[in-house]
Design a protein around this nucleic acid. Structure first.
Lengths: 157, 157
DNA sequence: TTGCCTTTGACCTACTTTGACCTTCGCGCC
DNA sequence: GGCGCGAAGGTCAAAGTAGGTCAAAGGCAA
């Protein structure tokens, strides 16, 4: 077993010990403990604890910094995973997706309206293809947030 | 938790104890109590008790000097108008504004999280000053949307 | 051999903490 | 009243802490 696999196992162990499926680690400390380069932790996090594997990562720099690993109780549905992977999103696509999310009860009316506002072309005053790329980023970030917030629940987004 | 977070908590505690939402502190005394450099108090005040978060700071030097922390009461319309007029918005400003809106009950936790996601610098992968301009557009669009939706209600945002 | 995954290290960005030096104010003394 | 001193608070830059990124090098299997 290579280092990355070992680190993965270690983190999963920590997650198992925690009832809330949230674990905070200190990157340099952990790297030291496991005898690897700090950036290796990032590598493991991006390859093994990605969004579409059902994990979310948050972090903070500076004094008192940390990396927080959150395990979602359910993996996102096929449709959502598809949405998460788009590199570009047109205005029309975004509107369809928001409508879908709203229809299935993942978004309240207000939340849907907020999302529409954030990805509207008249708001994102940028040229193409930049606009569709930024829209994709915004949409993904918002969707990820929804997933995280409903992560405590059971029914899969 | 780092020192700054602790000081923030401490001050909020003091504010909670005071019905009028005003607290006077003595910088050196507090610094001594909390075991930190006096200027650290200023750091916390500027980063956590800014105007964008709904606080006002007054102070006086010399003998009998003090720092007064005032939590602004709900008089949203004016501040919201102010927010709507910004041509540029930094990440820090946006976060503070969202915190304020949430604290005063204009945003649910989910809505606040969605807004944060949409204006995050790591999401808006653009250079400056473009990033702050786009953020201002997005923020304004979302806020405008909220206002429209609560337009039917009574307590106007 | 070639391509993919892993590992490392140099350099970057963000947030915090501290200390040296500055300004303002009240007070007592002439 | 003017002066000077000590008591506060203000500012700012430097140092400290911690995580992020990226490209190059390494290793292994098809």
């Amino acid at each position: 077993m290579n280092l990355s696999d070992y680190i993965e196992k270690h983190i999963k162990q920590l997650l198992k010990q925690d009832a809330s499926s949230v674990v905070d680690i200190q990157r340099n400390l952990l790297a030291d403990e496991l005898g690897c380069a700090p950036s290796q932790i990032n590598y493991v996090l991006t390859t093994r604890f990605s969004r579409d594997r059902g994990y979310l990562i948050e972090s903070r720099r500076g004094g008192g910094g940390y990396i927080r690993i959150i395990r979602l109780s359910t993996k996102p549905s096929e449709r959502v995973r598809e949405m998460l992977s788009s590199q570009r999103v047109t205005q029309a696509q975004a509107m369809q997706r928001i409508a879908w999310l709203e229809e299935y009860g993942w978004l309240s009316k207000r939340e849907a309206a907020l999302m529409r506002a954030a990805v509207d072309s008249s708001v994102l005053k940028l040229g193409l293809p930049e606009r569709d790329i930024v829209r994709a980023h915004i949409f993904r970030a918002m969707l990820t947030t929804l997933i995280k917030l409903s992560g405590g629940g059971e029914s899969a987004l």
